[in-house]
């Protein structure tokens, strides 16, 4: 088991390295000079070729790509100095570059936005399971009934709405039309330490939108996995032992059905952690997703690169966790 985790960590590290190279190369070989956005940003003056060359020189874009990639990697581990023409900034490890916009280290901002994203992700993911799994189990037990068919088709309808539209409608209904209490009419992020109610109020809308939309999928997964599990021979054995129906369904059926659901959940949770762009944008929550969207708009290349890399790390990491958890859930994997 330990060897397996180490092996997965090594391969995960390799993938992260490849992703970082790809992101680096993407901007390096882009259609315009990677220094152009920051040159354009200078107030009041047009970016004339001479100034652009100066920026390129100070940012090292005149060096070969591998030298600069080397500096970038070194920055992550030991930090480095970054010059915007004449101004030199210190960027401590782990350095992911400086924002063109604020000239602040990207890492600082990433860390400051992390609590918001984690809060959205945890709440949303919690609702995925809290709603999706019980509804899925109930539907599987009544497979083929009118209630099951109605549920399956209505959830199919829900999940075929584009998510951003769904989120906007949720916002519209809950705040503008219904004026739900506690919930503010725009979302915001207030740290948990500043009072749980405030934290809850600001994120509630985002959670509801994410949770309801996501739970339709989890209902489908759970229902499918449960239907399959309930048709297994060991369920018949459990019934033949004289176990009560509840025990048969939950201890024998759900225990087996949860394995694939947990697998999908782990990956979904990873992508939630990587940032929920629509949710954060629509509900005005200053998380990583919103930030990356702004960075694209601002042509803030270091931020775009950092958020992309961060997403990749989150996904790879969640995949690793899923595989480890999976082997704990299924003794056939663990003991072979």
């Amino acid at each position: 088991m330990f060897a397996y985790i180490v092996k997965r960590l090594i391969s995960g590290f390799l993938v992260v390295t490849l992703v970082s190279m790809a992101v680096f190369a993407l901007f390096w070989y882009g259609p315009s000079s990677p220094a152009k956005p920051i040159c354009d940003r200078e107030q009041g003056v047009r970016c004339i070729p001479e100034r652009l060359v100066a920026y390129e020189k100070s940012l090292g874009y005149d060096n070969p790509i591998y030298t600069e990639y080397g500096k970038f990697v070194k920055g992550i581990f030991v930090g480095r100095e970054i010059a915007f023409r004449t101004d030199v900034y210190q960027c401590d490890a782990p350095c992911l570059g400086l924002s063109y916009n604020t000239k602040q280290p990207v890492t600082h901002e990433l860390v400051s936005r992390l609590p918001a994203t984690i809060s959205v992700a945890v709440g949303g993911a919690f609702l995925y399971l809290l709603l999706g799994v019980p509804i899925g189990v109930a539907a599987a037990r009544r497979r083929g009934s009118v209630a099951d068919k109605a549920l399956v088709s209505s959830f199919l309808f829900l999940s075929s709405i584009p998510y951003y539209l769904f989120a906007l409608l949720t916002w519209l209904y809950l705040t503008v039309l219904w004026e739900a209490p506690v919930v503010s009419d725009v979302g915001y992020f207030s740290p948990f330490s500043d009072g749980p109610l405030k934290w809850f109020g600001g994120l509630f809308l985002a959670w509801v939108a994410l949770g309801i939309f996501g739970c339709t999928q989890y209902t489908r997964y759970t229902r499918g996995a449960m239907v399959e599990a309930l048709s297994e021979d060991y369920i018949r054995t459990a019934k033949a032992k004289g176990l009560p129906a509840r025990t048969v369904v939950y201890r024998h059926g759900l225990r087996a059905a949860l394995v694939p659901v947990v697998t999908i959940f782990g990956i979904d949770f990873g992508s939630l952690l990587a940032g929920t762009i629509f949710t954060e944008r629509i509900f005005e929550i200053q998380g990583i997703g919103y930030w990356s969207l702004q960075a694209v708009g601002n042509k803030d290349l270091p931020v775009v690169a950092a958020t992309t890399l961060f997403s990749a790390v989150m996904l790879i990491f969640s995949n690793l966790i899923v595989d480890v958890v999976y082997s704990f859930l299924d003794p056939r994997v663990r003991l072979s």
Binding site: V227, E228, L230, S231, E232
Partner: peptide
């Protein structure tokens, strides 16, 4: 597999 015990 079929859930129905009447697999036959």
């Amino acid at each position: 597999m079929t859930q129905d015990p009447n697999a036959e």
